[in-house]
Simulated assay, not measured.
Amino acid sequence: MRVVLTGGGTGGHIYPALAIAEQLKTDRPDTEFLYIGGQRGLENSIVPQSEIPFETLDITGFKRSLSADNIKTVLRFMKGVQVASGLLEKFKPDVVVGTGGYVCGPVVYAAHKLRIPTLIHEQNAIPGLTNRFLSRYVSTVAVSFDGTQDQFPKARRVMYSGNPRATTVHRAKASEGFQLLGLPEGTPIVLIVGGSIGAKAINEAVMDMVTDLVRMPNVHFVYVTGKRYYEEAKRGLDEAPWVTPANLHVLPYIERMPEVLAASMLVISRAGASFLAEVTSLGIPAVLIPSPNVTNNHQEVNARALEDDGAAIVITESELDGDKLLEAVEAVIGDEYLRQRMAECSSKLGKPDSASVISAELRKLSVRAQAIRRGAL
């Protein structure tokens, strides 16, 4: 089986694609891959680490306002379709998988024109522009949130799959997370994370409540500042007139996030779809501060979906401060019944078999494509 993966820009698009590849490799060890990404996205640093052959296209996204740049984008799209077609004709995939980001547009559209079966995966509760455009052309649309299938009225087939990143994280061992942090196994951990870069608003709220962490001496707070804000946060703590609480662990980044997540009893984070899939796959209660700086405010929609099902507390950035965040943390930490109920609700939303569901669909599409080529259908 030969599979082309495409998706880029952010880890939220890239890691689901790699999770699908991992599952396909487990199900069919002889599967061969090619990953087609954009020239500017994070995929350029992430995908090569997976040892999957990697090619790039020069592609940018549309601006939502009238702009001359959109003319350049159309020209790049058309050129991208040509380049993608050449890569597809050379690699001869049985199926093409798109997980979002601008680069998916020309690659998946080229596959459609070449009559190669295609599947796109939508991570968010509100679909991105690229996936909405592609949905009318692909064989299958897979969605992360059950109940969002009607967001693709022109698709020929829509299936609820969950987010394949959940499968990867569900395998993580909590014992390894405690070991990575140098903490005794079973230590109550609150993980605070704003993404690989970090989130300024979350960092400011955390700094505001740091002195109150002594009220929860048995709880260890793992505060991941993001690389951009680490030096600033460390300087703020070092220069503060009070002593940094002993139960605070400050890091710029966590390389093995799944293991640390597995060891956590509460997560404070943004509401990116892939990260929420990881959280729910492990059944972790969450305090979510959705980023307001995203298209269609989709992070708040993601967060509200968890809140509505009892798995999370949502604090919008406009109402966030140290007192509000501390109040939410103490509410969950101090109420064992609430914490257990949130964990159960989170676990019910999790779909750890997501990658297997998508792998099975891709294998069906591949078999059908091969049969058509042989003239059996």
Rank of each mutant, 00 (worst) to 15 (best):
A142P: 06
N131Q: 13
T99N: 07
T140Y: 06
L129P: 02
L129A: 13
V108A: 02
F145M: 05
A155F: 02
Q149R: 14
V96L: 09
L134Q: 04
L129F: 13
F145P: 02
D94M: 09
G128R: 05
F145S: 01
V158N: 10
V95H: 05
G100Y: 06
R157H: 12
S135F: 00
Q151E: 15
V158P: 06
K113D: 10
H121S: 04
V96D: 02
T130V: 15
Q149F: 07
R136Y: 05
D94P: 08
K154H: 14
G128P: 08
P93S: 12
Q123C: 07
R156K: 14
V141D: 03
F145T: 01
F91C: 12
S144V: 07
A111S: 12
P117K: 07
D146W: 09
L134N: 01
H112L: 03
Y109W: 15
T99I: 07
H121W: 05
S139L: 10
V108R: 00
P153Y: 13
R115N: 14
S144R: 08
S139H: 11
P117W: 04
L119R: 01
R156C: 03
R157S: 11
P153F: 13
K113F: 05
N124L: 01
K154I: 07
V103T: 15
R136S: 15
S139F: 10
F91Q: 11
Y160I: 09
G105F: 14
F145Y: 13
V107A: 08
R157T: 08
M159R: 14
G147W: 11
C104T: 15
P127R: 11
R132K: 14
P127I: 12
D150A: 15
A155T: 02
R136L: 07
